[in-house]
Nucleic acid binder design. Sequence first.
DNA 1: CCTACCGATCGGTAGG
DNA 2: CCTACCGATCGGTAGG
Lengths: 201, 201
Amino acid sequence: MTVTDGRLVRGQLSRQAVMRSAVDLASVGGLDGLSIGGLASEVSMSKSGIAGLFGSKEDLQLAAIAAAAEIFQERVIAPALTTPAGLERLRALIDAWIDYSESRVFSGGCFFAAAAAEYRARPGAVRDAIAAQMRRWNEFIAGAVTRAMATGELPADTDPPQLAFEISALLDAANDASLLHDSAAPYARARTAINALLARH
Amino acid sequence: MTVTDGRLVRGQLSRQAVMRSAVDLASVGGLDGLSIGGLASEVSMSKSGIAGLFGSKEDLQLAAIAAAAEIFQERVIAPALTTPAGLERLRALIDAWIDYSESRVFSGGCFFAAAAAEYRARPGAVRDAIAAQMRRWNEFIAGAVTRAMATGELPADTDPPQLAFEISALLDAANDASLLHDSAAPYARARTAINALLARH
DNA sequence: CCTACCGATCGGTAGG
DNA sequence: CCTACCGATCGGTAGG
């Protein structure tokens, strides 16, 4: 397969555009509510055109999780990595996440929060993939906390996984409440709580 | 309609049992995944028997929300109300909620956490009913905080809605992570965080 | 990538 | 509360 194969290039471009729509649809209607037919009409393709791109519905769901992870990387992780390690990077990470949620990168808010709530009690490959992403995210926050301890900006008795749990809890709650009540106020509450948390440490 | 009408009595008993199954199914598979046919086979009734009890799927969903609210009242609110108002009642409320989530009163964990995540981006009567229940719950926590301020157990500059937001964020995060990772550890993290929060105030 | 089709299930209703 | 049915949509496949 060469890069100059027109069909391949078109196929890849189309697949990327299809995935962007798939993730957005799933953030609102759920990964289970994401139907092959519904996605097909959203992107003006035939149902079997979509089916052919993925193979099965579960493959489509797993592809959506991978695509969402890429966008999360671009929007949240990458911007934070441009700042110096330590408390500044931890704060940049929190700001980037709030911006990612509040600016509605996905119509239904954070894709992973929605997907985790939907599949947390349904064993299988989809739940495993979501759990792996969530674990990565929490470990990334904990790593940023550890770096801020190394610079002396957070005290040596800080418990990184515990603080990461608390930070992600407050971020998720802001995402949840903002969507449920059509309000930006929960983001301010999360910022207030996280600032107090970091000031206390 | 008299209480001695056999058909009525049986109808009410059956409706209650049906609702209990409906809420449990919805806690795992979502309020949208709750199908009339699926519920029918779960309780060994005909599909139109279930349909006749409710009228429409949306009515079934709204009835499930109301039934879940009743069980939540029994399991979380009522036990807390047997303790004296103040910090003790606030702590009883938190303990009761953790027990309600951890003991899997519903197979999929807290029904409202699941329903809120599913419908928060889908306007309509179902979302409105869930939002109203969530608002009530947060106001109840805030009220308990206010009482603990009145007894002097929490300082006068405490912000009740802010503290209620933080407490419910930590509880929801424990429910989420416990289900997603099949672990009881997140409940201990939530307890640790909430204890620190209350000790700081 | 398409049309055309499969069996299964969806929400809902007629009629009893 | 039941059987029997309606049109629509589901995931998936055959064949091109």
